[in-house]
Amino acid sequence: MKKYPYFHSSLPVISEKNIVDLAKVISSKIAGKIPFEGLENYIYDEVPTIYINSNILGFEVILQRYGGEKGYYLEVNSHPSNNELNDTDEIDIDITRYIASLLEGTPGIKIKYKEIKSEDYISIME
């Protein structure tokens, strides 16, 4: 049987920037400056959340949480419009470390590496 990849990432980051300013920095690093939107849509109940309303190479990009000491979560997942084919099985592919490597060294962003460390991931220098 054919396999269909489902990509997912939940990257914990810390930034003193507010969610809108952080989103601008993230977009410039990973999404060609496509703007985030939807702060008023409350897609995750009461949690501040913004997203890129475009299918970027089959991915959706979501930034959520309150920031400060608790930080934010940057989610990059297979876009919901990319449904698996009827004759395939879905395979989960975690791209958290890849997304971390794209943002590594970005001023104003600190990646919470301790929360994503695992021997199953590629090594990234801290």
Rank of each mutant, 00 (worst) to 15 (best):
E119C: 00
I56E: 10
G58N: 04
E60C: 06
Y44T: 14
I91E: 15
V47M: 09
G67Q: 10
E40I: 00
S28L: 03
M125T: 15
K70T: 13
Y98P: 00
L39R: 02
M125I: 15
L103F: 04
T88L: 06
L102K: 00
G108W: 09
Y66C: 14
P48V: 13
D45I: 12
S10K: 01
S118Y: 00
T88H: 11
E84Y: 15
E16A: 13
E69G: 08
G67P: 00
L102I: 03
I93T: 05
D94Q: 03
I43H: 04
G32C: 02
T106W: 07
K29M: 02
R97A: 10
F36I: 11
P5A: 07
Y51Q: 12
I30H: 04
S81D: 15
L74F: 00
I99G: 02
E69R: 13
P12I: 02
T106S: 13
N41C: 08
Y44A: 04
Q64F: 09
K33E: 15
I30P: 07
I52Y: 04
M125E: 14
I95N: 02
I109P: 07
G71K: 03
L39Q: 07
L39K: 02
G38K: 01
E75P: 04
L11W: 03
V61N: 04
I26P: 10
K29R: 13
E126W: 05
P107S: 09
E104T: 06
P107T: 13
E119H: 01
G38D: 06
F36C: 12
L39E: 12
G67E: 03
F59N: 04
S27V: 01
Y73I: 14
N18F: 07
G38N: 06
V20D: 14
I19N: 14
I34Q: 11
N82V: 09
E75Y: 07
E16Y: 09
Y51E: 14
N18C: 11
K17G: 10
D89I: 03
V20S: 10
I116L: 01
A23S: 15
S10R: 00
G108D: 13
I34Y: 07
